[in-house]
Design a protein around this nucleic acid. Structure first.
Length: 897
RNA sequence: GGGCGAUUAGCUCAGUUGGUUAGAGCGCUACGUUGACAUCGUAGAGGUCGUAGGUUCGAGUCCUAUAUCGCCCACCA
């Protein structure tokens, strides 16, 4: 296969993905005795979803984990799927229905409307999964699940009925967040708060039996006074001491309501008296319950006032407010109106102002479910990364409130509860036919509950329902529990905690220690824009991953994201930040290109033992180090560290040094060490591609194929190949030290060239002073390497050298390199550079001296540290001497000219 | 009000259990197309680590306070 000088992702990605899928490579291997399984369940995106950077990051991490495990010999399974997302999906279809046909869901009726939703889902529902494919994610698509499919429905019913049977499900009145446009209750998480400039109205409530005396209350929603059943003050508030327990007269309606004392009232705010509207305010609901105040419900489902609104019945909230304010004013009961800024709850979906109101809802008692979930982290069965999220999780569980699981929607799992003619409910696993006898009362069933379940009531079963639960399928036995969950912090409560509860509650065929649905919950970074604002659809500041893929390729998007994202640290992104990954890909591609072009001829096996020269031992040592670093980093969820290690190894070690050093060996027809060089190149490339594969799967797969062809190696696709085991690789400290000497000298000579303007490739004659025998031996042995890297025509290597007249000089550690000059060259910059370096070294020595001169340091510090300090000081002293000598020498030279 | 995170080079960020002369990428400056790569190479300039205290022989690293930015929870009559 021909390798062009640039990698063009668009030419490869689709076909590589097809070959992965075609080979069945995403599916776990057939079961075998003693296998180790590694399972990840994707956090199912909404069917209405469109790929954003948060998905891209979160799922890239999962793909890295899965690919790494797959290559490391685990039987790896990554289950994909989507969430039916009740409100979001219903809203999309409703909007479309209205735009295209000017119809509402009520015009169609439940059944016909649901058909529309399903057909929308069939048509558009897989869009985001297609986008996941473009990212290169290796999910087992044959196991794709959807939270509304029949299997999930069975699981949802089973779970509901079990809770019902244990008495954990109950129905009761509840103040819910009512969306008057969508006409449904919405969860607390489906609300946003908007700062609004509004008015605060002070209203006088006459005190019964004390003509002309009032208690004033302040409110932003005067129309809710119609539902007031009390007024509360703080029991410690002296202003009201004599009044507590008296009766007030509600203006307009004339209802008599008590003045009560309640600890939660803030005396500092307003008049210190607060109207209590248990039907339409969460806090008041609590207060009302404590004091047994009646609840008055004021609204119809669409937000208009009902008959409790008296003269205002039938009006909208806004109209009623205006009328009531006017009336109060006329009655002289409006004490004052002041401007007031506060936050108002608005529905995410409809943007209408949320009206808290009381309605009958189904609840799940959460306390008993929370207990095992708390034990899960305390026992270590579940670990959070970063660890600090454990506290967040526990705080929520320890203060958990009952879960309102009913939603007044059509799109969702209809609650499996039926009522007989007396309204006695019963939950059932199988549909109860109308007219059939109620299992408990024997009376005919007349209807099913119309509400559906909260979306999370299906997704909390995701880790096992996807594997076939409630049936004890082979998959469930084999792949549950999973090992890793990667998700976003905002759903730790909504989803993560509930999955843990569900695991302990429902998988009662397993011992408790095997029920936790995942071992590690990795909480992802939040993706921010370059201003540090959270990327969101509403803000319109998102970067489209697909656009980035089109521009840079999926590998570049993945690698950039991982490189930039430190564990637990939010990441700021701008489109140009994807260039780094793209550049790196180009580097890898071209390094591979060079290697492939150099492999003609016999090859060694590429082990450290077969290394012929220092640079071979060195690069294999670096490879061994990189392998250890990367493996450890992946193990510890430090994905960016793993990517950084690979980046450095490939770019700084392999490309900058090894490939450059080895070039002459490859070009020479006679160099007997070329065999070892080729073997080393092949080994290094092979291992590097393998380790890069989880990060940049497409490109590495392409290059893997090319490498195998080139070296006639029969190997499976890289995706199914083995993670490098390090066989035959040896860490070689001596080789690294020796190589360092060469690098230092070469860099020093290059620096001289640039500082003096000699020119980068002008052949030079150099005399090198190497007072240390070991370094001299190394340089002697690698004279060719030094000469070619530093572009030396000739050099002399001696123990010491008298500085030749008219020469420039480089200092590197204990080494000096004197460059004979053939023409007049300004050495000023060179001298300044040496002098500056001398200053720095001098400062370093001063630091050392301060430490070593301190008896406490020498006494108390670790002896190794002291020893290290001494030898460092000696090294610096030696270098400083050389620097100062040559600064002086150069000054003389300059003045003598 | 409670909790959490961040603050290190112009920008974006690393900096492991306190111990080298505090690093990287981008940007910037200078030079350079040698057969992997100009989507490149080489060299260089540039921070004393938000502020104030403290612990310690020694603090970017630990403690306290404080400032600024951001997030989460609760509350908002």
């Amino acid at each position: 296969m021909e390798i062009s000088t640039r990698y063009t992702p668009a030419d490869h990605e689709a076909s590589v993905y097809r070959s992965w899928e075609g080979s069945g490579g995403f599916q776990p291997r057939p079961p075998q005795h003693g296998e180790r399984t590694f399972t990840v369940m994707i956090p199912p995106p909404n069917v209405t979803g469109v790929l954003h950077m948060g998905h891209a990051l979160n799922n890239t991490i999962q793909d890295i984990v899965i690919r790494h495990r797959r290559m490391s010999g685990w039987c790896a399974l990554w289950v994909p799927g989507t969430d039916h997302a009740g409100i979001a999906t219903q809203a999309v279809v409703e909007r479309k229905l209205f735009e295209e046909e000017k119809k509402t869901r009520n015009d169609l009726g439940r059944e016909a409307f649901l058909e529309r939703v399903w057909s929308w889902k069939e048509k558009h529902g897989n869009y985001i999964l297609e986008q996941f494919r473009r990212m290169g994610f290796s999910c087992d698509w044959s196991r794709t699940r959807f939270t509304m499919e029949p299997g999930m429905s069975r699981a949802v019913r089973e779970a509901f009925v079990r809770l019902w049977e244990k008495g954990l499900v109950y129905r009761g009145p509840r103040l819910v967040n009512w969306d008057c446009v969508l006409e449904t209750a919405v969860g607390d998480d489906e609300i946003e708060y908007v700062q609004r400039k509004d008015k605060l109205y002070h209203i006088r409530y006459p005190i019964q039996g004390r003509a002309g005396e009032y208690v004033s209350v302040a409110t932003t929603r005067p129309e809710t006074m119609l539902g007031d059943t009390g007024v509360a003050v703080n029991p410690g508030d002296e202003r009201y001491q004599g009044l507590i327990g008296r009766t007030l007269v509600l203006p307009i309606l004339g209802r008599e309501i008590p003045l009560i004392a309640d600890e939660t009232v803030d005396s500092e705010f307003g008049t210190g008296a607060v109207k209590v509207t248990p039907g339409h305010d969460p806090e008041d609901y609590e207060r009302g319950a404590r004091h047994r105040l009646p609840i008055v419900n004021l609204y119809e489902k669409d937000g208009r006032l009902n008959s409790n609104g008296g003269p205002y019945a039938g009006m909208t909230r806004e109209k009623a407010r205006a009328e009531i304010v006017k009336k109060l004013d006329e009655l002289g009961l409006l004490a004052k109106v002041e401007p007031y800024e506060h936050s108002v709850a608005v529905s995410d979906r409809s943007k209408s102002v949320i009206e808290p109101l009381v309605s009958e809802q189904w609840f799940v008692k959460m306390k008993p479910l929370a207990e095992p979930a708390i034990r899960a982290v305390k026992s270590g069965a579940l670990r959070f990364r970063p660890e600090r999220w454990t506290k967040v999780y526990l705080d929520w569980l320890e203060n958990v409130r009952d879960w309102c699981i009913s939603r007044q929607l059509w799109w969702g799992h209809q609650i499996p509860v039926w009522y007989d003619e007396d309204g006695v409910p019963v939950a059932a696993r199988e549909d109860l036919a109308l007219g059939s006898p109620h299992p408990n009362t024997g009376k005919p069933i007349v209807r099913q509950d119309e509400d559906v379940l909260d979306t999370w009531a299906s997704s909390w079963l995701w880790p096992f329902a996807t594997l076939g639960w409630p049936d004890l399928t082979d998959d469930l036995q084999r792949f549950y529990p999973t090992q890793f969950l990667s998700t976003a912090r905002e759903i730790i409560y909504l989803w993560v905690a509930r999955m843990v509860m569900a695991g302990y509650e429902f998988l009662d065929h397993l011992p408790e220690e095997s029920r936790c649905p995942f071992e590690v919950c990795y909480v992802n970074a939040t993706v921010l824009d370059s201003q540090g604002k959270r990327m969101s659809k509403q803000a319109g500041n998102g970067i489209d991953p697909i656009e980035m893929i089109d521009k840079y390729g999926a590998d570049a998007v993945r690698f950039s994201l991982i490189l930039l994202t430190r564990e637990g640290q939010d990441v700021k992104l701008s489109p140009d930040r994807f260039e780094q990954g793209w550049r790196f890909g180009n580097k890898v591609w071209n390094a591979a290109r060079f290697v492939l072009l150099s492999l003609e001829g016999p090859r060694s096996d590429g082990t450290s033992a077969s290394a012929a020269r220092l640079e071979d031992r060195w690069i294999l040592s670096r490879l061994a180090a990189a392998r250890e670093d990367v493996s450890a980093a992946l193990e510890e969820h430090r994905y960016n560290d793993a990517a950084t290690s690979l980046y450095r190894f490939v770019w700084n070690d392999l490309c900058d040094w090894y490939l450059e050093i080895v070039k002459p060996r490859m070009l020479s027809q006679t160099d007997p060490t070329a065999t070892a060089a080729r073997g080393t190149l092949a080994r290094v490339l092979s291992d590097a591609l393998s380790m890069l594969h989880p990060f940049t799967p497409y490109m590495t797969e392409v290059l893997w194929k090319a490498l195998n062809e080139r070296i006639s190696r029969a190997a499976p696709m890289l995706m199914n190949s083995r993670w490098p085991d390090g066989a035959g690789l040896v860490r070689n400290a001596a080789a690294e030290v020796e190589m360092q000497t060469i690098q230092d000298l070469v860099r020093a000579v290059r620096s001289v060239r640039l500082l003096t303007g000699i020119g980068e490739r002008k052949p030079l004659t150099v005399q090198v002073a190497a007072p240390r025998a070991a370094e001299r031996a190394v340089l002697e042995a690698h004279a060719q390497t030094v000469k070619s890297l530093a572009f030396l025509e000739s050099w002399e290597l001696r123990e010491s050298v008298q500085r030749p007249p008219n020469s420039a000089v480089a200092v590197a550690g204990s080494l000096e390199a004197f460059v004979s000059l053939t023409e007049d060259i300004d050495l000023d910059k060179l001298r300044q550079s040496l002098a500056k370096r001398a200053e720095k070294v001098k400062a370093g020595i001063a630091t050392c001296d301060a430490r070593l001169g301190n008896p406490a340091f020498v006494e108390r510090a670790d002896p190794d540290i002291v020893e290290e300090e001494r030898s460092r000081r000696a090294e610096m002293a030696l270098e400083l001497a050389l620097l100062e000598k040559n600064v002086a020498g150069l000054s003389e030279g300059a003045s003598s000219r």
